[in-house]
Design a protein around this nucleic acid. Sequence first.
DNA 1: CGCCGTTGATGAAACGATTCAAGTGGGTTC
DNA 2: GAACCCACTTGAATCGTTTCATCAACGGCG
Lengths: 337, 337
Amino acid sequence: MGVSVKEVAKRAGVSVGTVSNVLNRPESVRADTIDRVNAAIAELGYVPNDAARQLRAGQSTQIALLVLDIGNPFFADVARGAERQAALTGHTVLLANSDDSHEREAAHLDQFERQRVAGVLLVPSDDAADRVARLRERGIPVVLVDRGTADSSVASVAVDDVVGGKTAAQHILDQGRRRIVFVGGPLAIAQARDRLAGAQEAVDAVDGASLDILETTSLSLEQGMAAGARIQELVAEGKCDAVFAANDLLAIGLQQSMLTGAGRVTIPGDVVMVGYDDISFAAAAVVPITSVRQPRERIGSTAVELLMKERDAADGAVREHVLFQPELVVRASSTAQ
Amino acid sequence: MGVSVKEVAKRAGVSVGTVSNVLNRPESVRADTIDRVNAAIAELGYVPNDAARQLRAGQSTQIALLVLDIGNPFFADVARGAERQAALTGHTVLLANSDDSHEREAAHLDQFERQRVAGVLLVPSDDAADRVARLRERGIPVVLVDRGTADSSVASVAVDDVVGGKTAAQHILDQGRRRIVFVGGPLAIAQARDRLAGAQEAVDAVDGASLDILETTSLSLEQGMAAGARIQELVAEGKCDAVFAANDLLAIGLQQSMLTGAGRVTIPGDVVMVGYDDISFAAAAVVPITSVRQPRERIGSTAVELLMKERDAADGAVREHVLFQPELVVRASSTAQ
DNA sequence: CGCCGTTGATGAAACGATTCAAGTGGGTTC
DNA sequence: GAACCCACTTGAATCGTTTCATCAACGGCG
């Protein structure tokens, strides 16, 4: 169908081996031969066939990145970081979306196996341990992203969500607030669970402080808006003077619902609010939202670095775990007035 | 390295051809043979090698989708629609991000050529006509997405941005406003240009109505916030009583800047505001934003459909162009009070 | 003049799946 | 019992690259 090395070789009057050498080891080919071959390539419009190259090589140069939700700007930045780092070693990032569904996650991972990708960066939907084990058995290195070191046998890069949660709650307590409500979920998601656990630690250390939980079914804007109504009730009943949202999408939804609701709740007057992720919408909210920032691009690039180490390491090598520390970005939603 | 058909065949006591038949044409294989082969596959943990299959087939089952900005939730939805439709024909979507850069766009397209993808869905960064022509020469069908039918020789699916702009402006005029400011840019981007042109049409038809232009350097939240200051001046000078933003990111940034600025501008009292895209953040803004909705998922799924038609069509086939009509979603930001 | 080392080019084997013409065997028919 | 069918199976050829052992040419050297 397309133009192949064979035709380029004929055109340039050399053998196929030489064409391949021009492409991959030009230093071992005489300059005028190189020119002749390149001329033939240009004239014929030859484009190498990756499938053939890959078949011979035994593995692709693609690194798969499977995220929970491409709609979340957080993951877009992680992907950017990964792409940048991958490019350094001639790799390419294959971006896929599991939409938090086990089925889709499994389907994508199957596909990656068939493609013999160079590695998988996985933001696991829940407990993907067996799937991961299977990939590793097949010789495909895996790095877990944005997920604590629950399973220490797999390399991972994450941000310490427990510390993040603790920092957020501590900041709220420092503002003098005592009746905190955590909004987030489902708690089956490790990120939500860890952030909550961290917040609990901080709250437990302060007498008279309480932490209630308002569990949501997803970490989305819509769920945030829905939860807003309940928060307003709690505020009216004097049971809530601060909200810690498991991510910024929730926080934005909450804020909208609370500011426009019948309850006339003010932020940060009635309720201090802290979010998580520091996506750009957080700073652009009407009351800019204090948020826990994660080094998003850095997470992506580090994940690729770990993947390369995994690949190069001998089988029984020690798995590396990178844990970044989050950073609190204080804005108007939590600044005492 | 991995397990291949050959080993499965040996284990099951059949030939490689039979294993292949079990996988691809089970109806032509006896039931007990199928069982035996499947057992061998399970025991050995065999996973087909896509590269080999693809090499033989001459083309991959991946459809590439190259967007301007994965960070924009709009494209996430387009991708979702494309993925859903592609799955119906056993295809897979390869998502890539050009970040509005010609270089990255070119690099990705080169990569797609090497991979012999089944087709490319392209949101062109600017004028990608020659790149597209080249892909088509190589036998790779292309569908332009979210881009008018500037080049009628390439199939395309888009939303009528001129109509969308006109609808938005007409709605503003219907609210009795006459001093409209269009915020968006750069005007080199077709989407921005077309939306402006549509608005101009509507304004021209009404005596005493004016349309000023505030050009931005990108369609981002940050640019919206920056433009907000200027809008407040114009409002103070009595030169602006309505804003039409080229997309919702801008609108959200504008709103935040205007509502919290020193000018104490109210929405929709002082300024009526209309955005574009109807991303979920628009409905969640403090003053929910009236916006022009595009059938996002539908754009993605239709693009894949067109791609399949392109592929099946004879060489000289007529290129199809689908143009969806946008829909105005009215919310508080433009509702007279 | 013959030998050797070096540099560069060659061409066949291999990667793993699919395809398809050819083959095998068992059953049916006359 | 020969001829023929039908339903499966077989196995070699093929896809486009890369790799590597082998080979050719040439210049230098004794």
